[in-house]
Structures are given as structure tokens and as C-alpha cells.
């Protein structure tokens, strides 16, 4: 076969084959093909190749039954994009649990205790608050009743006693956890 120099038309032959050309373009390509032996032969070749495509039986029902449920699919897509949000939620939930546990352990001392304990503990060991972020929720000391203050003082004594009783390497974890001295 001699090569047709009309690249534009040759590029459109697969579209002609698939019936994917708009009316005007299709007429133009068909008119060229009617006049051009090379393009006619090329189109015939493409048609033969298309007809020779392998036919593979597909079990549609089996594939459909293997698909994830729509909800699961949505969740997967969401979670892949928003894992950081999820992690933040978990973190907050963990912090909340910690506070709740503190509150359960001393119901009479109410919600002010965890924050106060955290702040006092930090100053007692001279560290920063890096290890206690979830407890530093900013409660007001002035809300404390006398009974609560008593309880608090007991806590402070207890917590301060830990590093002071054993000041050296025997309890390194305390210092490290609270940001160092």
C-alpha cells in the first residue's frame, strides 16, 4: 500500500470505525476514504483487527457480589482522605476519657480537678506541659470549694513527693514524660 499523506484523516479512522464522529466530520472522512485507496485499505485493516478482538466471557453476577457495599465504599474513600481528622477525633476522645476517668475517681472534686492537677504537677516538677496537653483544659481555680482545695493539696503533696523522694536516675521516666527539668 502507498501511504496516504493526510494524517488528520488517518487519525480519525478509528473514530469512523467506532461511529464516534459527528455528522459533518463523518461526511468529510467518508468522502476522503471513498477517493483514497490507502485509507480504504487501512480502514479495512482496522475493521479486521477489531473483529479479531478476543472475546472473554465475564461472570457479571460474581463480580457484582464481590463489590463493597456503597456505605463501605464511601467510608473507605472518606477515610483515605481524612485520616488526620479521624486521628484528631481519636486523640480528643482519648483525652476526654482521661478526664472522665479522673472525674469518676473523685466524684466530689468535680470537673475542675484534672486541670488543676495537671498545672500543679507541671510546676511541681519544673517542666513544661507537653506531656499533659489533654488535661490542660483551662478550668478556673476560683471555683474550688474548701473541700476541693483540701483534696487538691493532698494530690499536690502526693505528686510532688514522687520526684522529690527519689530525685535521681531511679525515676527518669517522670522527668522525661513532663518535658525535662
Amino acid at each position: 500500500m502507498t501511504e496516504c499523506p493526510n494524517r488528520e484523516i488517518r487519525d480519525l479512522l478509528p473514530e469512523l470505525l467506532h461511529g464516534a464522529l459527528d455528522g459533518a466530520t463523518r461526511s468529510r472522512v467518508e468522502a476522503h476514504v471513498a477517493e483514497c485507496v490507502s485509507c480504504r485499505e487501512e480502514l479495512a485493516l482496522l475493521r479486521q483487527v477489531q473483529a479479531l478482538a478476543p472475546r472473554v466471557r465475564v461472570d457479571v453476577a460474581r463480580i457484582v457480589s464481590a463489590l463493597p457495599a456503597p456505605e463501605l465504599a464511601r467510608w473507605r474513600a472518606w477515610s483515605s482522605h481524612a485520616w488526620q481528622i479521624a486521628a484528631a477525633v481519636v486523640f480528643m476522645a482519648a483525652g476526654g476519657t482521661l478526664v472522665a476517668r479522673q472525674m469518676r475517681r473523685a466524684p466530689d472534686a468535680d470537673r475542675t480537678r484534672p486541670a488543676v492537677v495537671a498545672s500543679t504537677y507541671d510546676s511541681a516538677v519544673g517542666g513544661t506541659a507537653t506531656g499533659d496537653v489533654e488535661l490542660s483544659v483551662g478550668y478556673d481555680y476560683s471555683e474550688l470549694t474548701d473541700a476541693q482545695l483540701q483534696a487538691l493539696l493532698k494530690d499536690v503533696e502526693h505528686m510532688s513527693a514522687v520526684p522529690m523522694a527519689e530525685p535521681d536516675a531511679s525515676v527518669p521516666a517522670v522527668t522525661v514524660t513532663n518535658g525535662g527539668v
Binding site: V56, V58, I63, L67, A73, R76, A77, H81
Partner: peptide, 24 residues
Amino acid sequence: SCGEREEVDELVQDTFVRAFGALD
């Protein structure tokens, strides 16, 4: 057409499972 002959249906199924699990 890419030359795969073995477990073609597995591969096709995996393709749809993967696609439907990530339509977003």
C-alpha cells in the same frame, strides 16, 4: 490483549472491586 491468560476473571473482578471502593 495485554497478553494475560491466567485468572483473567480474577483480575477483572479485582479491577471493579478496587474501582467501586474508591469511586470518589
